[in-house]
């Protein structure tokens, strides 16, 4: 008990010594620096849908990986993409990664397809994008037509792999930052 009491007393003395340093001139001013807020860059793709053309309108394919096409089938993939660009000096380029897909064993002349494109209101989205270019419901699409003119057993058990297709939004440094 005696040792404990001594240690406590020494501690109190130290606190008193420190408090003494406040007793000098000091002044404080608000800098009014404000708050820095960052913007946003985002790309959100909804789940895409494959359909097959039919006389009564397109029919949705639940899982393209389980669907086997035959000559005469026309498949269309559609997907909506939303782009967010918030920032007073933000700029970005939108690109489709691996748009062409990979053909394995579809014979030339038995099919047609085109690279995946991303369009808004029927026009391909032009780069660079800036803060005024928030886009909702841009449409990515690709069509695969297995031609009726396919003869014999051409292109049976073939695949065309679009699984590596992706969309990428890359911020680019603005050439001349603008302060609003």
């Amino acid at each position: 008990m005696t040792k404990g009491a001594i240690v406590t007393a020494a501690g109190v003395m130290l606190l008193i010594g420190g408090g003494g340093t406040l007793a000098v001139w000091n002044v404080q001013q608000n800098a009014e620096v404000g708050t820095i807020a960052s913007g946003d860059l985002n790309l959100v793709a909804s789940e895409g849908v494959w359909t097959v053309a039919a006389a009564d309108g397109p029919i949705t394919i639940p899982n393209i990986n389980n669907y086997q096409i035959v000559p005469g089938d026309t498949l269309t993939y559609t997907q909506t993409v939303d782009i967010t660009l918030d920032g007073d000096n933000i700029a970005a380029n939108l690109s489709v990664v691996n748009p062409a897909g990979v053909n394995t064993n579809f014979a030339q002349g038995t099919y047609t397809t085109s690279p995946v494109t991303l369009v808004k209101d029927g026009e391909e989205i032009a780069n660079p994008l800036d803060e005024n270019d928030d886009v909702t419901n841009a449409v990515a699409s690709v069509t695969f037509d297995f031609l009726e003119s396919t003869d014999g057993r051409d292109s049976v058990d073939a695949t065309y792999d679009f699984s590596a297709v992706a969309f990428k939004l890359d911020q680019i440094a603005p050439a001349n930052p603008v302060v609003p």
Partner: peptide, 22 residues
Amino acid sequence: GSYALWNKLVPAGTGTVRSADF
């Protein structure tokens, strides 16, 4: 260091088209 700007990659999930056997 400025090359490491914001970017986002979103897989399209397009899948694979395969033909049937006759």
